[in-house]
Amino acid sequence: MERMPPLQVALYLALVAITVMFLMLVVAYATARIRSGVPTGLHPFPRYFSLSTIVLVISSYTIGQALRLYEHDDLASLGRCLGATLLLGCIFSGLQVLGWRELMTHGVPFRGEASSSSGQFIYLISALHVAHLLGGMVLLLALLLQVLHADRDAVRSLVFIRNPYHRRQIKLLGTYWHFVDVLWVVLFAVFLFLF
């Protein structure tokens, strides 16, 4: 039986910890929402959250192509794929900020009295999600720079393609990105149901 690489073990442990944290926050949000007694549908749901969900799902598709491109020794396309994913991650983050502004204009304050604490959970949960996405974007940028550097020279390109560590990096980054994507889709569904 093959041992799991330490980086993969660390990633899986981190994903479990992130899942538990968000699960606790969602339970706290649902409890605060129910206790507030404010009926659902009182405020319109931010359309930017819906747009950001579409953008993140598309980014999950683009990062999903990375491993295939790597295995076909196509560093130029891999660089474009990683760059597109990074750009979509930036767009998602910007749309989240616009969603927060939309929440404020619809009367869901970031800070306020205890009765609006359920609205504060939306800001907190989505901001923490963006922070986790930004962490992935930093790793994505580092990998993109490595790919662009390797693609400039045939020897560096060959060394990059034949290094199993780079394959593992791409695979782990894809796993993390898909996790963050699925996490947002679940959070979006919770917000949609309870908002």
Rank of each mutant, 00 (worst) to 15 (best):
V190S: 01
V38P: 01
S50N: 06
V147Q: 02
F110E: 08
I161P: 02
P6V: 08
L23Y: 12
V27T: 14
E113L: 05
Q120H: 10
D151C: 03
A17Q: 04
A84R: 14
H43K: 12
L133C: 10
L25D: 14
L69M: 14
P44R: 13
V9M: 11
V16D: 10
V20T: 12
A76T: 09
L56V: 04
F92W: 11
L98E: 12
P109H: 07
R168L: 15
I170T: 05
M1R: 08
F22L: 08
R156G: 00
S52L: 11
G37W: 06
I63V: 14
L7D: 14
L124Q: 03
R156Q: 15
H72W: 00
S59H: 03
Y48G: 00
L140V: 03
L148Y: 06
Q169H: 00
G37R: 02
V155A: 12
A154H: 08
F92N: 10
L82S: 00
A114W: 10
V138W: 11
L128Y: 14
T175L: 15
G112H: 09
H178G: 02
L148K: 13
L187E: 12
L7E: 13
S116M: 13
A32F: 03
R47G: 06
P164H: 04
V185I: 15
F191P: 04
T40D: 00
S157P: 01
L143Q: 11
G94Y: 07
L133K: 01
M104L: 13
H149L: 05
L25E: 12
F45C: 08
P6H: 05
M4E: 12
F191Y: 14
H149S: 11
M4P: 01
R47K: 10
Q146K: 14
F45T: 03
M21Y: 14
V182K: 14
Q120G: 15
V57Q: 09
L67I: 15
S115G: 10
W100I: 04
Y61D: 02
F49N: 03
L7N: 09
L75A: 05
Y165W: 12
A131I: 13
M21K: 07
L15E: 14
V16C: 06
F193I: 13
